[in-house]
Computed example of a mutant assay.
Amino acid sequence: MENLILKKELSNHELHLLGSEMEKRKKSTVVTWLLWLFLGGFGGHRCYLGRVGSGVAMTLTLGGLGIWALIDAFFINGMLKKKNEEIEATILQEIKQVNQKAAL
């Protein structure tokens, strides 16, 4: 929700810049699902989404003997959406900082 408010304050050029940066930095749905499919028991998808601690825990427990990895199938899209929202928030803050420096 906060991202939406910050986006309303941006010019067309800044929105284009945001879109361009998001295309470069966002986490891919396909890559996330492939990592889950092939490395789900080792937490590969969690490491890719920046959840290294739980990814290591999955590695040590072999994905809770597969149960944890199976449960993640239901939550992976939410984790991906949250991570991409965090990336967007970071980019918005960077744009805001550049604007503040330019105003000085």
Rank of each mutant, 00 (worst) to 15 (best):
G19P: 02
S28L: 05
M58K: 13
L62C: 13
E9W: 01
K83Y: 01
G41Y: 13
I91T: 08
Q97R: 11
I95A: 09
L15S: 09
G64W: 12
S28W: 06
C47F: 14
L104G: 04
G50T: 10
A69P: 02
T61N: 06
V31H: 07
K24E: 07
L10V: 04
T59S: 12
L35T: 08
K81Q: 14
V52Q: 02
F38C: 09
A69S: 15
G66W: 10
A57L: 14
V31Q: 11
M79T: 00
R46G: 09
L10R: 04
R25I: 01
Q100I: 02
G53C: 00
W33E: 08
E2I: 12
G63K: 08
E23H: 06
I95H: 09
S20W: 07
T59G: 15
H45F: 04
V98N: 07
L34P: 03
A89D: 05
L62W: 15
K8D: 14
E94K: 10
H16R: 11
A102W: 05
L35N: 11
M79S: 10
L15V: 05
R51E: 13
L17Y: 11
L18M: 05
E94M: 08
K24R: 13
N99K: 15
L49W: 09
A73F: 15
G63V: 07
G78C: 00
L6G: 01
Y48M: 03
R25Q: 13
K26R: 13
I71E: 00
L92P: 06
N77C: 02
E2N: 11
A69D: 04
A103M: 09
A102N: 14
C47K: 15
G63Y: 09
K101C: 02
R51I: 02
L4E: 14
A57C: 06
V31N: 05
S54V: 09
E94D: 15
W33P: 02
L104E: 13
L49M: 12
F75P: 00
E21V: 04
K96T: 10
L34D: 04
W68L: 06
L34R: 10
N3P: 03
S20H: 12
G19W: 03
Y48V: 00
L60P: 02
K27V: 00
G41L: 11
G66F: 11
L6F: 03
F74W: 09
R25K: 14
A102P: 01
N77M: 05
E86N: 11
R46C: 08
R46M: 04
R25N: 10
N77K: 14
E94G: 09
N77D: 09
G40D: 01
V98A: 14
I71G: 04
I67E: 06
E2D: 12
E94S: 13
G50P: 11
A73E: 00
W33H: 15
L80I: 05
L60D: 02
V52P: 01
E21H: 08
K83P: 00
E86G: 11
I67H: 08
I76M: 08
E23R: 12
V56Q: 03
M58D: 14
F38S: 08
W33V: 07
G44V: 00
N12Q: 07
L49R: 09
E94W: 06
K27S: 04
